[in-house]
Design a protein around this nucleic acid. Structure first.
Length: 518
RNA sequence: GGACCGCUAGCUCAAUGGUAGAGCAGCUGACUCUUAAUCAGCGGGUUCCAGGUUCGAGUCCUGGGCGGUUCACCA
């Protein structure tokens, strides 16, 4: 197989053949490095020229050649590895004729092993004086432009390997992402939660409302859904006596793709027995504050134009949030108590829709089939959600839109549920778990009867059975890891924090397929 | 799905409807402390695709592809 740019590809193949004919193995198996370029920099970066001249520290370093400045019978260049660059100096007199010949057959992008002593040049840059040069892997394709790098967003996602080589920011995002999941695991491990893995392929849809991906198991001749949430399995584990569990893994939802949605995304879900939603809010504050401090070094995190303070969390009921952000021109500001009767909730929605009509905004749905709980949820999303920049818990979710949450004792139209919003994004969703099997069964049946592509086709009988064996009072929460990483890396698209976001296939445009699709 | 924006050399980008260009990368040569090395020379194009308008299209029009933004959808 050959790749563009063809002339350069073939040129490099030719050089590789020459290297082989000089007696060097074309793809050697290993290299015993003492340091990566970044380790050299961190260990010797503080040494002065004199100190290096006395100590003459010798190192063996491996990395990718990312800059080359040949000067006839000598050359400078930079070796990249571990996120740092180390200058190297190759001189005919030092490496000898054979190695210098090899060096002249090297290109930008090649991976080499260098052995030599460290010194400082007259411009005082830490440099390895190459005494021994080994080609470790020939790059047959060139790197993107050395100064501007790779800017084309599509190419950055499709060829993430180039993005990672060339764009330091991309590399930093994914290192930080790893740090975040590491800290999350530490947080839960320290508190005696156990990490579990539950099925990604589900025979029955459940745990959230979303259109699923469908797949098929041949041997069992059985349709399966890629999971949209691990929730029902994790709560079975709590029934089984694993009182504190968490899982960090992928969910799959067959829906729209935009700046904050991707079809597969990573969710942390955790459950703790003998607890309720208010404890979870406290725990979530602690978690987020600690994470920001650990990862960003401060609780005050820059995100675009704003500075988000993870040291301070607001709490508003959903109804309060609607009232607080009620648009000025939308008539009389409602009172949180107005939502208690169906009639008045509908009046509020009508008032908002009149405002939306004038401002040509999208109205909220108000049909007969829409319950006042759904109405409240819609109004919240239309009016308040985007304003929630600083960390804000929204609680008192209507029961109608919370099929797995426990109702409030004093008001069964509301549940003990909250969501955390930051930068206008939903980051977390937690609640006191509904553990009354009969109530749960009624809510499941209502979902199945309502139908639609997002509703399960059947009631998850085994889950009801599990609840019938007794789920202790339990609180559970899901945190969207990708969005959390966005917040802590000042990234404004979920694609930026996912290594390989889903894109349409690159196959040749205008092929016969187009006709066939119609 | 709608609206808007983009797509030109391997990469980053230019080009009033009038001969498609530069820098980097590549190739040849010079150069033993350079660092976006420098100097001299050379090669490199289905201007995303298919039609149309025009004497003439990278540029204008229609349709399509891919990406982006945004709205809608979406727990």
């Amino acid at each position: 197989m050959e790749f563009e740019p063809l002339d350069q590809y073939q040129q490099r193949r030719k050089k590789l053949a020459e290297i082989e004919s000089l007696g060097y193995p074309p793809f050697p198996h290993k290299f015993d490095a003492t340091h990566s370029p970044s380790q050299v920099v961190s260990q010797f970066g503080a040494r002065t020229a004199d100190e290096l001249a006395v100590g003459k520290p010798g190192v063996r370093v491996a990395g990718r050649i990312v800059a080359l400045r040949p000067h006839g019978k000598a050359a400078f260049g930079h070796l990249a590895g571990g996120g740092a660059r180390l200058q190297f100096y190759v001189k005919l007199d030092t490496v000898g004729e054979a190695a210098f010949k090899l060096f002249q057959l090297l290109d930008l992008g090649d991976i080499v092993g260098l052995t030599g002593e460290l010194f400082r040049t007259k411009t005082n840059e830490l440099t390895i004086r190459v005494e021994k040069l080994e080609l470790l892997t020939k790059a047959l394709l060139p790197l993107p432009e050395k100064w501007h790098g790779l800017a084309d967003t599509e190419m950055r996602y499709r060829r993430r390997y180039l993005d990672l080589i060339v764009n330091e920011r991309a590399r930093e995002i994914f290192l930080r992402r790893a740090q975040i999941t590491r800290e999350l695991r530490r947080f839960f491990d320290d508190r005696n939660y156990i990490e579990v893995e539950t099925p990604m392929m589900h025979p029955i849809l459940g745990g959230a409302t979303a259109r699923p991906f469908v797949t098929h198991h041949n041997r069992f001749d059985m349709d399966l859904y890629l999971r949209i949430a691990p929730e029902l399995y994790l709560k079975r584990l709590v029934v089984g006596g694993l009182d504190r569990v968490y899982e960090i893994n992928r969910n799959f939802r067959n829906e729209g793709i935009d700046a904050i949605h991707q079809p597969e995304f990573t969710m942390l879900e955790f459950y703790q027995a003998y607890s309720d939603f208010s404890e979870l809010m406290d725990l979530t504050e602690e978690l987020m504050r600690g994470l920001a401090e650990k990862v960003c070094g401060t609780t005050k995190v820059k995100y675009g134009e704003s500075e988000i303070d993870f040291g301070k969390f607001d709490r508003l009921s959903m109804r309060e949030a609607i009232c607080k952000y009620w648009p000025q021109d939308a008539g009389v500001e409602p009172n949180a108590n107005d939502f208690k009767t169906s009639r008045r909730a509908r009046e509020i929605a009508a008032r908002y829709n009149e405002f939306a009509r004038v401002k040509s905004l999208e109205p909220v749905a108000t049909g007969e089939s829409i319950s006042e709980g759904e109405l409240t949820g819609e109004l919240f999303e239309a009016i308040a959600e985007r304003h929630l920049i600083q960390p804000t818990f929204i609680y008192d979710f209507p029961t109608d839109i919370s099929p797995l949450s426990k109702k409030r004792v004093d008001d069964p139209s509301l549940t003990e549920r909250f969501e955390l919003f930051v930068a206008g994004m939903e980051i977390a969703n937690g609640f006191s778990e509904l553990n009354d099997p009969e109530d749960q069964e009624r809510r499941f049946r209502a979902q199945v009867e309502k139908g639609g592509q997002e509703a399960p086709k059947e009631v998850d009988v085994d889950y009801i059975r599990a609840l019938s064996h007794g789920l202790p009072p339990t609180a559970g929460e899901g945190i969207g890891i990708d969005r959390l990483v966005m917040l802590l890396t000042d990234s404004h698209a979920i694609r930026e924090v996912m290594l390989f976001p889903l894109l349409r296939s690159e196959s040749a445009a205008g092929s016969a397929d187009d006709e066939g699709q119609k």
